[in-house]
């Protein structure tokens, strides 16, 4: 029993160490890939970012719509339904934008990354690169990692913007809140520090989600089952990590 616990702990420390080393390796190769092989990064920004746009925009619109409905009906109890714009903007920019985008990103782009890399490993493509004296971490993982890190904040911004549009459609166009009040209240209550908080969160979540996806793919057991498991773990681990980081960043930024 004690022995089991000791072994589990040892395994955990070892994996965590390997994970940190892996992160450092990605960072080590990132600048030169970014400068010299920018095209590879652009391709991955397209894969992770542009291809996720539809799901991000649809979800953003409906989340914004829900905020408009909830904001209107709850604020109306205090006769403050004009503040629905401020309410939706604060919720989206500080919290929902980065968090929900990160979760959707893990589901759409993270799984694609993990399964792609896992399958490349299973079909010997990564070994073949090794044998051609090309470092797969540098050639395959770094561009994908950077693509994710660049895409996430942009997607979060799109999500928040479309969300505001959704809130506007619901509260102003459908429920009859005054459009001027909607925008003025929003401008007055939204501070630059709120926007900074959203940006910091989305950057951190982008790093977390992309890092976990390439890590799981690279360490997948090279079988059909192993790749499937790696994909699942990407989503689960990203969700947990994002929510924990969200709590910590919010606590620090208060």
């Amino acid at each position: 029993m004690f022995r089991d616990f000791y072994n589990t702990l040892k395994e955990f420390v070892r994996t965590f160490g390997a994970f940190q080393l892996f992160f450092l390796r990605l960072l080590q190769h990132s600048p030169s890939i970014f400068v010299k092989r920018f095209r590879l990064v652009v391709k991955q920004v397209y894969n992770a970012g542009a291809l996720s746009l539809v799901i991000i925009m649809v979800c953003g619109f409906f989340i914004g719509g829900v905020l408009g409905l909830q904001g209107y009906s709850n604020l109306a109890r205090f006769n403050a339904e004009d503040s629905v714009g401020a309410f939706a903007a604060l919720a989206l920019v500080k919290e929902l934008g980065p968090v929900i985008t990160a979760l959707l990103f893990a589901g759409r782009a993270g799984t694609a990354l993990a399964s792609e890399i896992g399958l490349m490993k299973a079909t010997d493509q990564l070994s073949a690169m090794e044998m051609m004296a090309v470092n797969p971490i540098r050639r395959v993982l770094v561009p994908r990692f950077l693509g994710g890190v660049i895409s996430m904040p942009l997607l979060a911004a799109v999500f928040s913007t479309i969300g505001l549009l959704g809130a506007h459609v619901v509260s102003v166009n459908l429920l009859g809140v005054d459009a001027g009040a909607f925008w003025i209240q929003m401008q007055q209550s939204l501070d630059i520090s709120d926007i900074n908080e959203g940006i910091i969160k989305s950057v951190v979540f982008g790093i977390v989600a992309s890092l976990l996806a390439v890590w799981e793919g690279y360490n997948a057991v090279p079988t059909a089952e192993g790749v499937g498991r790696a994909t699942t773990r990407t989503v689960v681990n990203t969700a947990i990590a994002v929510l924990i980081f969200d709590f910590m960043i919010t606590a620090f930024m208060l």
């Binding site: 490349m120 079909t123 493509q125 070994s127 073949a128 044998m131 051609m132 004296a133 090309v134 050639r139």
Partner: peptide, 29 residues
Amino acid sequence: RRRFGVLFQNGALLTDLSVFENVAFPLRE
């Protein structure tokens, strides 16, 4: 390793690149 050319048992072509780009891959790198 650059002095070696290795033919893998299952080919191990890079599936996201065309045949031409696969062969060109070591040259481009």
